[in-house]
Simulated assay, not measured.
Amino acid sequence: MENPTLELLLNRRTIRAFKPQTLTTEQLNTLMEVARQAATSTFLQQCSVIHVTDAQIRSQIRDITTQSYVGANGDLFIFVIDLYRNQQIRHQKGETDGRLHAMDVFLQAMEDTVLTAQNVTTAAESMGLGCVFLGSIQNDAQKMIELLNLPKMTFPLLGLQVGVPDQQPQIKPRLPLKFRTFENQYDYHYELADLADYDEQIHQYYDLRDTNRRVDTFTHQIAQKLTTSLAKRDQILTVLHQQGLCLE
């Protein structure tokens, strides 16, 4: 089965080098309209998007992420979990916060935010633009909150750099479907040996990649990652509580 949308999604790749130009007004407005139309849990619309154009703020976000391309060329967006707006609506209607501090409401807002970011990414790539998600803004969530002047009941979840690509990276191989899709019930039987072919794919990908010529495998990365504690990331739950989120 083929169509332009499937071709786009099946061939997507992360772009980390952008040409020195920003989005046109038409492109920017279109992407924000796409964000507005993203799916939303129970119509609560608990996501907001901040377009970061201030050079000093972009520089400080770059420092947080420790990634040189962040806030350099292209446009930088931060996708924010936003329960503040609905809190203010409730207060001005004479209501209490209700269940706004509950974990499940936070998860609904997180879902809204992720879906919005993915919508924008797909739309941008359909315009011939490139994108890179920036989970690295979580390296110092409290600093991000201060930089963006975020009120209580909000949380910066994802960054997204969008621009005109200045590179053509290879497509990074993903795990075979048999390891990620199941029917009816989860298949929890895993043997390291079953991943040997995929490890070889990843080894070849890194060996042949135009930049960052490292030799590695998927299983080696998993064995090495998720081990070292990242002090600021370990404080995320505390930051969420300080923001009034996930209290129940």
Rank of each mutant, 00 (worst) to 15 (best):
N149F: 05
V164C: 15
A38R: 05
Q56L: 06
G130D: 13
V239A: 10
R12K: 08
T53K: 11
E33N: 09
Y190D: 12
T5A: 09
R214E: 12
D234C: 06
T14V: 07
L195S: 00
L157I: 09
N149A: 11
P173N: 13
M32V: 12
T121Q: 04
R90M: 13
A72I: 12
T65A: 09
Q142I: 02
L148I: 11
R174W: 01
L157F: 05
V132H: 01
I202F: 02
V80A: 01
F18V: 06
V34E: 04
R85K: 11
D197Y: 00
D210A: 14
K172M: 04
E146Y: 11
A102E: 15
P151E: 13
L6F: 08
T116I: 04
V162Y: 05
D82I: 11
T113I: 03
Y205H: 13
Y69F: 12
L237H: 15
F79Y: 13
L175Y: 00
Q204N: 15
E33I: 10
Q242D: 14
T113P: 05
M32I: 14
E111L: 15
Q27M: 12
A17D: 15
D216P: 01
M32P: 01
K19A: 15
I81G: 04
H51S: 13
Q161A: 11
L150V: 05
T116H: 02
K143D: 06
R16M: 09
P151K: 10
T238H: 15
L9I: 12
P20V: 01
L237C: 12
V215M: 06
E248G: 15
K225H: 10
H203Q: 06
Y206Q: 08
Q138L: 02
I171M: 09
T113S: 09
T14D: 08
V34Q: 06
P151M: 11
N149R: 05
R209L: 04
K143N: 07
L10R: 07
L115P: 02
R233V: 07
K178A: 00
T116K: 02
L28E: 13
L6N: 02
Y190L: 11
D207M: 13
Q21D: 08
I78K: 05
T228K: 13
A17E: 15
T65F: 04
Q161W: 07
Q108S: 12
T211Q: 15
M1C: 14
L245I: 08
T154L: 03
R214Q: 12
L129E: 13
K178Q: 06
V215L: 09
G98S: 07
S229V: 10
P173A: 11
Q108W: 08
R214L: 07
D140N: 15
Y84V: 01
F182T: 05
E33W: 03
L147W: 05
Q27N: 13
Q60R: 14
A193D: 08
V80L: 02
Q138D: 04
S126N: 02
N149S: 11
K232N: 02
R99W: 13
Q108L: 07
Y198S: 00
F133V: 13
R209A: 07
K19L: 14
G244D: 06
Q92I: 01
K232D: 03
M103P: 05
L8E: 15
G135S: 13
E33H: 06
G159F: 03
Q224V: 04
L226E: 15
F106N: 13
Q21Y: 04
E191H: 12
